[in-house]
């Protein structure tokens, strides 16, 4: 038995698939791909799947890792091509590698966010104010976790933040804490900024582009 790391993109209508549903969806995909799967032992044998860093509902992911376990001889390239043939619309396999790093090493992730405003004026006003707020180092918001709701300074969990207006769009590139130790959903940052500025976008889209370990090194 060995683990392989499957990298995939989740875009389009697939962003509406919840984490739980992703699990079911990919469990079936690995069966359709006829991979020599290793099954969990117990009353209800299932293929082993581990989504290292589940995406929140409604967010796109461009470089998402999933570990699966297989038995027998099959190269990473064979796993990739078998999987590619059976994926539903919106979930695309980009690579299959050996798992090098451990889940626990993930510390942050890069997000690319687009906010569409009603006018160019609002987009640029929002960008300007948002930039100042983040630079001030203080953006306080209520954050829910398993242990209850806490008031936290979101800026402490943001390691990079760039915003610029482009027409009616405000485009954000940001790196926020991600992983088991500390995690900040960028949607929370956006919601806090909207509240602070009082400028409501018509729509928002969030895309996770990369995962990092310490010192900004790419997770692999």
């Amino acid at each position: 038995m060995r683990s392989v790391r499957v990298w995939f993109k989740k875009t389009g209508t697939a962003i509406y698939i919840s984490h739980l549903d992703m699990n079911r969806c990919l469990s079936r995909a690995v069966v359709r791909a006829k991979l020599p799967l290793w099954y969990t032992e117990g009353f209800n044998p299932k293929p082993y799947l581990n989504f290292l860093c589940p995406l929140p509902l409604g967010q796109e992911g461009l470089n998402e890792p999933l570990d699966i376990r297989i038995e027998g001889e099959m190269t990473n390239e064979e796993v990739r091509s078998s999987l590619c043939a059976v994926m539903p619309q919106g979930i695309e396999i980009t690579a299959v590698t050996d798992p090098i790093m451990k889940t626990a090493q993930i510390t942050s992730a890069q997000y690319s966010i687009n906010l569409l405003f009603g006018s160019e004026g609002t987009a640029s006003a929002f960008s300007h104010t948002a930039d100042e707020i983040i630079k001030s180092g203080e953006l306080v918001a209520e954050k829910r976790s398993k242990r209850g709701t806490k008031t936290v300074n979101l800026c402490e969990m943001i390691t990079a933040f760039e915003i610029e207006a482009e027409g009616s769009l405000a485009k954000i590139q940001t790196v926020t804490a991600t992983g088991s130790a500390s995690n900040l959903n960028p949607d929370l940052v956006v919601t806090a900024l909207i509240e602070k500025t009082g400028l409501e976008p018509v729509s928002r889209s969030i895309s996770r582009t990369r995962l990092f370990i310490e010192k900004g090194e790419a997770f692999c």
């Binding site: 389009g12 209508t13 697939a14 509406y16 698939i17 919840s18 549903d21 509902l57 409604g58 539903p88 619309q89 919106g90």
Partner: peptide
């Protein structure tokens, strides 16, 4: 459950 309304299933 937005997945009820999106279509695009396998």
């Amino acid at each position: 459950k937005p997945g009820r309304y999106t279509g695009g299933e396998l």
